[in-house]
Simulated assay, not measured.
Amino acid sequence: MMHMAESRQDTDLTVGDTAALVGVTVRTLHHWDEIGLATPSGRTPAGYRLYTGADLERLCRILAYRETGLSLDAIRGVLDDAATGIAATLEEQRERLAERICDLQRIDKRLARLADAHQHGILLSAEEQKATFGPDWDPQQGARARARWGDSPQWAQFAERAASRSPDDWRDLSDAMSRLEQDLGAALARGVRAGSPEANDLADRHRAIFGNFFPITRQMQVCLGRMFEDDAGFAAHYDGIRDGLATWFRQIIDEAARGDGIDPDLATWQ
């Protein structure tokens, strides 16, 4: 670019030719003229801008500093204010860029975790999952869940939360769910009736814990209760804790919904 400027030292150029030569738009040159950053030295008899070789030199310097990310005001100071320390200004800009690079690296890591969470769900290794959820846990459950619900808004919400969840966070959630399941089994063994305050409290605890994965309404919980009873895998899990627990769990969820004025027979995933 400097070579191009040097080759036109004795030639006055129109704003269009100048814009084409230095690689900016005519509108940009007009703006720089208006703010006093790069004012052309000449005018035609009709008042049109004419740029000299010296003007081209200044434009080349402006472009060089603009590539560093300096603001136009900072560039004006560098070019026009003898008291401005160019090296100090550039070092300050480097510091700002270093901070920005760190910010971008953090954003990149966050994006990578979000992408992984949308793809895999739980961002724990197979060994970490077994250590967190128990030796009977199947690490392939995440892949099966994505295949089944991967296109749903709830999977996206699950993934967004999973991306920021640490192994300790998962362990806390797993412990809370395990305690609830044991309390459910104990309540069934004691003959707690669906619709009783204790049963309703257990249903509320389930909804609160499950809400850590994605927001869950009472109607959505009813749909989950049906799945816990009808799905062979879920039914086997709950009935393994206490015989008949899958059906009783669905019943206490249904009765809690009725207490909120919802007919469980009409509940939909909303």
Rank of each mutant, 00 (worst) to 15 (best):
T89S: 15
A267L: 02
D230G: 08
Q9E: 14
P215S: 13
R207I: 10
Q9F: 10
A256E: 11
W155H: 07
G23E: 06
A145I: 08
H30T: 01
G53Y: 02
G261P: 09
A189H: 08
G47D: 08
A54D: 10
W170V: 01
E255Q: 13
R49Q: 04
N212C: 11
A162F: 02
L173K: 09
G85W: 09
G225C: 08
D81I: 07
G259W: 00
L123M: 00
D80L: 13
E91W: 06
D183M: 12
A20N: 13
V78A: 10
A38T: 02
F210W: 12
L114R: 11
W248S: 04
A156E: 12
A87C: 06
D204C: 05
T44Q: 04
S71N: 07
L63R: 14
A74F: 01
W269R: 11
T39Q: 10
D230K: 12
R144H: 13
R106P: 04
A88M: 09
D169H: 13
R66Y: 03
R218G: 04
R190S: 09
A232I: 03
D243W: 00
A112W: 00
G47S: 07
E95K: 15
R226H: 15
R76Q: 07
D260I: 00
D183I: 05
D103C: 05
A20V: 10
T25E: 01
G233W: 06
A98V: 11
R193M: 08
L97S: 06
A246G: 01
S174M: 08
A83R: 14
W149Q: 05
R113G: 03
F234L: 13
E160F: 13
R146Q: 12
E67I: 00
L111P: 00
A256R: 15
E91H: 14
D81E: 14
Q119V: 08
R193S: 10
S178G: 03
R242W: 03
W170G: 03
D73K: 15
H30K: 05
A74T: 10
Q270M: 07
D201P: 01
L97T: 11
I75L: 05
H3Y: 13
G121E: 03
A46S: 15
T268M: 07
E6H: 11
R179W: 00
L56C: 04
T84G: 04
T68F: 09
D175S: 08
D17E: 15
A267M: 04
Q219T: 15
R58D: 03
I107M: 12
D136A: 15
R144A: 10
T25Y: 00
R226T: 09
V192R: 10
I262Y: 05
A232G: 02
R161P: 03
A88E: 15
D265C: 02
N212M: 06
Q219L: 05
D73V: 14
H118D: 11
R171L: 12
Q105G: 05
D33S: 11
R190Y: 11
A64M: 02
P45R: 12
Q9S: 15
F234Q: 11
L188Q: 05
E92T: 13
Q182A: 13
A208R: 15
D151Y: 09
W170N: 06
G134L: 01
G85A: 06
S7M: 13
R193Y: 02
H31G: 03
E127W: 00
R171M: 10
E181P: 01
E198H: 14
A19R: 04
Q154C: 06
A246F: 06
G16L: 05
